[in-house]
């Protein structure tokens, strides 16, 4: 099963490497990892997407906790949370496809960030599932290049 894990870490040189190499050394699946500074520059927040059965995920959480540079490890999977990913994608553009592409961008609530005669670059934000669907749908128009941020996630605020 897919798990999304939020990890508060020391904002320090080498922390990302420690986390990533722990995953590879122990043979854990690492689907995506993203990291950025938090409201407090001493800390960064990592969002990790991994897959595994309960036993494996419980080991993942414990091994993450065991690293000295991790401060708080939370499995968001079963808690109310918001999960988003950014997609940047350059598509081939032609007179015949132009219209459909623009319509689809609207459907996916995307934005045009750059446009040239024969290509268009768009951004889409959404859950990783939505991003997957977006890519599938646009595939037939010819994807020149794409980049995904990996998921970032956060607890839903209190009411």
């Amino acid at each position: 099963m897919k798990h999304i894990i939020s990890v508060l870490v020391e904002n320090r040189f080498g922390t990302l490497n420690r986390v990533a190499s722990m995953f590879s050394a122990r043979g854990f699946n690492l689907e995506s990892i993203s990291i950025g500074e938090t409201e407090d520059p001493e800390f960064s927040r990592m969002t990790i997407v991994t897959r595994g059965d309960d036993q494996i995920v419980s080991q993942v959480l414990k091994q993450l906790n065991r690293l000295i540079d991790t401060i708080k490890v939370t499995d968001l999977t079963k808690q109310p949370h918001v999960e988003r990913e950014l997609l940047l994608m350059t598509l081939k553009l032609s007179k015949t496809t132009q219209h459909e592409i623009f319509e689809l961008i609207n459907v996916f609530k995307g934005k045009v960030v750059d446009i040239k005669q024969k290509s268009i670059t768009i951004e889409v934000i959404g859950s990783p599932d939505k991003i997957n669907t977006t890519i599938d749908i646009f595939r037939s128009y010819g994807i020149r290049e794409l980049a995904r941020s990996g998921a970032v996630a956060i607890h839903r605020g209190e009411s």
């Binding site: 040189f13 080498g14 490497n17 420690r18 190499s21 722990m22 000295i68 540079d69």
Partner: peptide, 14 residues
């Protein structure tokens, strides 16, 4: 050496 010993130390420092 910090990179080399990351997986074999409890922790390391530069």
């Amino acid at each position: 050496i910090v990179g080399i010993t990351r997986p074999i130390t409890k922790h390391n420092f530069l």
